[in-house]
């Protein structure tokens, strides 16, 4: 069952200049992106900074209004939701952010932070909400004794557990995880990843994971979309993508990840992308990667490559795989 379906999503940010805020151009942060997430599936968007992955997440979370396109959740387009329908949507879609300390209000007690979504959506007393909150806190591995503490009393890992508890409290269908372990130490990261995995199984949750860390993506996702300058350039099941990536960008990205195992290092061949990603104000014509692509052809600078289905659930946006 498809839970979320993003269709031709576009998000352009106007660039204003001068006294009267004249629009002089657009940052095309997300340019025509489509993907879907099934029930109880972990889908990841991976890419470097400026690829547009966070903008997509923020559109889904209703923090941004898309410029164009549809976001269909449980069969309904949510881009124009209002009133009760919108509140219902917020109940089903939650989020966990990168920096746990910035995502918790420093002046609220832990139990109140987790109780807040319950109070906003259910007709229950503050005490009942707190009791439920403590149960959720215990489920994510925090002792009830922390309930009356403030976020500043916690370690990074504990604070991220509180953020997860807050997202979990309403038993949502989808949780957007925006770099959930990037700010944590390695030894704590593994605890949080395992917790997220357990919760998705237990509560039949779907995740949309936004990350630049390919090792985390490989560990936790079922399916992955690779983003470059506002486009998804390759989409495949996790194992397929990591074992036989097709798009030159995916190949380069993967080969750039440092590997702690020296014995594996020798087997890998490095594909270097020269230079840095161009700005998304005026992306290159044709394929957006072509100025940096090691396998560039004539056609690449002429037209935008189509999204080509190369295998089961495996799509690549690259001229190399177009039928001649």
């Amino acid at each position: 069952m498809t839970l979320l379906n993003v269709v031709n999503l576009k998000k352009y940010f106007p660039i204003r200049k001068g006294l009267f805020g004249r629009v002089v151009g657009y940052v095309k942060a997300v340019d025509n992106v489509s993907f879907s997430i099934s029930e109880n599936e972990v889908f990841s968007l991976v890419g470097e900074s400026g690829s547009g992955k966070t903008t997509i997440a923020r559109c889904i979370l209703k923090l941004y209004d898309p410029t164009d396109g549809k976001i269909i959740f449980e069969g309904k387009d949510i881009t124009r939701l209002k009133g009760k329908d919108l509140k219902d949507y917020h109940r089903k879609v939650q989020a966990v952010f990168q920096n746990p300390f910035l995502s918790l209000n420093p002046r609220m007690r832990i139990a109140d932070i987790v109780a807040e979504p319950l109070l906003a959506h259910m007709k229950i007393s503050r005490n009942e909400a707190r009791k439920t909150a403590i149960k959720v806190l215990e489920r994510v591995g925090l002792s009830a004794s922390l309930a009356r503490r403030f976020p500043s009393d916690l370690s990074g890992g504990q604070a991220q557990r509180v953020a997860i508890a807050r997202a979990l409290a309403l038993k949502p269908k989808l949780i957007v995880l925006d770099e959930p372990t990037s700010a944590l130490d390695v030894s704590v990261q593994a605890q949080i990843l395992n917790l997220l995995e357990d919760l998705s199984r237990e509560y039949k949750l779907s995740y949309l994971l936004i990350s630049h860390d390919l090792s985390v993506v490989r560990y936790i996702s079922d399916r992955v979309g690779v983003m470059y300058l506002g486009n998804i350039v390759e989409e495949a099941l996790t194992e397929v993508l990591f074992e036989s990536p097709l798009h030159p960008y995916t190949q380069a990205l993967l080969s750039a990840v440092p590997e702690p195992d020296p014995s594996l290092k020798k087997l890998r061949k490095r594909i270097m992308l020269p230079g840095e990603p161009p700005s998304s104000i005026s992306p290159p014509k044709g394929c957006r990667l072509h100025p940096r692509c090691p396998r560039v052809m004539d056609v690449c600078s002429k037209g935008e490559p189509p999204l080509i289905e190369v295998g089961e659930a495996h799509k690549v946006k690259c001229w190399l795989y177009a039928k001649k």
Partner: peptide
């Protein structure tokens, strides 16, 4: 040893990650 076990890998498939209990 533990630190090496709790790093997820991009270049090879790993089973469930082991982790170091407790905190720094």
């Amino acid at each position: 040893k533990k630190l090496l076990e709790c790093v997820p890998r991009a270049h090879r498939r790993v089973g469930r990650l082991r982790y170091i209990p407790g905190m720094l």
